[in-house]
Amino acid sequence: MRAAAPLIMPVLAAVLALSVGPPANAQQATPPPPEIAENLQLCASCHGADGKPVVEKVPIISGQHMFYLFTQLKDYRAGRRANDIMAPIAAELSDDQMKALATYFAAQPWPNYSEVASPEDTERAHSLAVEGQCTQCHLGGMLGDSRNPRLNHQKVDYLAQTMSDFRNGVRKNAAAMAAIVKGFSDADIAAMSRYLAGL
């Protein structure tokens, strides 16, 4: 995520200047609580008004699990997860706002997004998944639950960046993940990312 910062900042500024409305999904589904209506505009500028991220290496959060999202926001605010964009945003949020945002995004549908994994990618990813016992936490289909994020059809560039960050000690708020991906090569990470994004 850090590496993406130079790109994100101008995009963020440009998108904010256009003053986009709340996400399309939010308008169609239950309206968001008023205390987070303004926050949602900011979220949409990177994570996308329709749930599809519009900035490179930004994750899909529509349909992600509530407690995972809430925990990540708390970690950004506490400095446990470093990110030049998210840390200052989270610093301004109260616990109640974080809960409301996490609850809101968890209730949105996961956007239609997929990548194509080759048979070689799949074979390599299966082997890595056995070694790391990935489904113990992320469950069958890598759909996650509560405190473990959904990885199935997550953005391929975000997945690759995240695994690299865990491996390289940049992301430090999930020690168990760091230990698992420690031995991954760049090729392993690329294959696993395509596999997960195309599940």
Binding site: S127, E131, G132, Q133, A175, A176, A178, A179, I180, K182
Partner: peptide, 23 residues
């Protein structure tokens, strides 16, 4: 059996390393 020391993460998964199946 792989060890990596990390402080108590306040309710998150805390293995202190990793168990890896030898594929």
């Amino acid at each position: 059996y792989q060890v990596e020391s990390t402080p108590y993460p306040e309710g998150k998964l805390w293995l202190g390393g990793a168990f890896k199946v030898i594929p």
